[in-house]
C-alpha cells in the first residue's frame, strides 16, 4: 500500500493541459505538413514524383493549370506547372524533400493535418494547406459532441497507427477527459476508427463491423493505409484503404500520424478545437 502511494507521489500529475494549454513539444525532426514552393522547381524536374513510393506527387502542366485554376492556373502556366501532393497517399518519408535540389518541397513540424473530405488533402496550386476539419453537423454534434464511442478496426497494417491511437488513452494525453472512448463491440459504438490498408483477410470483418454500428454512425480513417492503401497501394492482397469502401467523415494523414495530429483531428470533429 505504502509503495503504491510512493509511486503515485513520484509520478505526480502527468495529464497535459492541451487544448486548454499549449500542445506538447514535438520532436524537431517530425515530418508534418509540407510546404511547397512550385516556383522553385527546376524546369522539367520530376525527382520528387519519381522518388515517391506511393505516387503521391504529380505535376499539373501549364495548360491543365489554366483549365483548373482560372487566374491561378494562368499564373502557373509560365513555369513547369503546379506540383500536386496528395497527403492522403503521403507516407511522410521525406525522400522527396531530401532529393529536391532547390528545397521547393520541405516538411515542417506543423501537426494539424486532419480533414473532413478526401480532396482537402490534395495540396497544390490553389491549396497550399489542408482544409482543416470542421466539426460534425449540428445533429451529429448534438449526439456525439459530449460522448463519442468508437470501435477500432485494425485492418492489416503495421500497428503503428493503432499504437499512436492507443497512446491517447494513457495518462499523459487522457482521451477520456473529452468523453472519447474505445469500446469492445461495434454495437456499443457511434462509429469506427479504421487503421490499415484493409487486407483481403479483413475485408469481410470490416464490412460486418460497419454494418453492426447503429445509425447514425461516423467513420474515421487514420493513417496513409486506411486513407488510400499506404505502401500497399495496388497490392492484390489489400483494398487500397477504407476510403475506397466506406463513407469517411474524418481523414487523419500520416505514417503514422503523431498522436497530437490524431487528437487534434478528433477534437476538431467534435468542435473542441477550431
Amino acid at each position: 500500500m505504502l509503495k503504491i502511494l510512493q509511486a503515485r507521489l513520484q509520478q505526480g500529475h502527468r495529464t497535459m493541459r492541451y487544448p486548454a494549454g499549449p500542445p506538447p513539444e514535438l520532436p524537431d525532426r517530425l515530418r508534418g505538413h509540407p510546404v511547397i514552393d512550385a516556383g522553385k522547381c527546376p524546369e522539367g524536374c520530376r525527382l520528387c514524383a519519381e522518388s515517391c513510393p506511393t505516387k503521391a506527387i504529380s505535376f499539373v502542366d501549364g495548360e491543365l493549370g489554366g483549365q483548373l485554376g482560372g487566374q491561378l492556373g494562368g499564373q502557373l502556366a509560365g513555369n513547369s506547372g503546379g506540383l500536386r501532393l496528395d497527403l492522403g497517399r503521403c507516407l511522410f518519408c521525406g525522400d522527396c524533400a531530401a532529393l529536391c535540389p532547390t528545397k521547393a518541397l520541405a516538411f515542417t513540424p506543423e501537426h494539424r493535418l486532419a480533414t473532413r473530405r478526401r480532396e482537402d488533402l490534395s495540396l497544390g496550386p490553389g491549396l497550399p494547406q489542408v482544409r482543416l476539419a470542421e466539426a460534425l453537423e449540428p445533429r451529429l454534434l448534438g449526439l456525439f459532441g459530449r460522448s463519442l464511442k468508437l470501435r477500432q478496426v485494425s485492418a492489416g497494417g503495421c500497428n503503428a497507427c493503432e499504437a499512436d491511437v492507443n497512446v491517447l488513452g494513457t495518462v499523459g494525453w487522457d482521451l477520456g477527459r473529452f468523453s472519447i472512448q474505445f469500446v469492445a463491440a461495434p454495437r456499443h459504438a457511434d462509429g469506427l476508427l479504421i487503421t490499415g490498408p484493409v487486407t483481403q483477410n479483413m475485408l469481410l470483418a470490416l464490412k460486418k463491423t460497419f454494418a453492426a454500428v447503429p445509425e447514425p454512425k461516423i467513420v474515421i480513417a487514420v493513417g496513409a493505409c486506411a486513407i488510400a492503401g499506404g505502401p500497399y497501394l495496388g497490392h492484390a492482397q489489400a483494398c487500397d484503404g477504407a476510403g475506397a469502401l466506406l463513407p469517411v467523415d474524418l481523414y487523419i494523414p500520416g505514417c503514422p500520424p503523431h498522436p497530437l495530429t490524431i487528437l487534434d483531428g478528433l477534437l476538431r470533429l467534435l468542435g473542441r478545437v477550431t
Partner: peptide
C-alpha cells in the same frame, strides 16, 4: 529524437541510416 518518428520511420535505409 533520432528520426522524427516514434517508429523509426526513415531511419533504416539501404546503404546506411537516414539521420545522424
Amino acid at each position: 529524437m533520432l528520426c522524427g518518428s516514434r517508429f523509426g520511420r526513415g531511419m533504416i535505409r539501404p546503404g546506411g541510416v537516414g539521420f545522424d
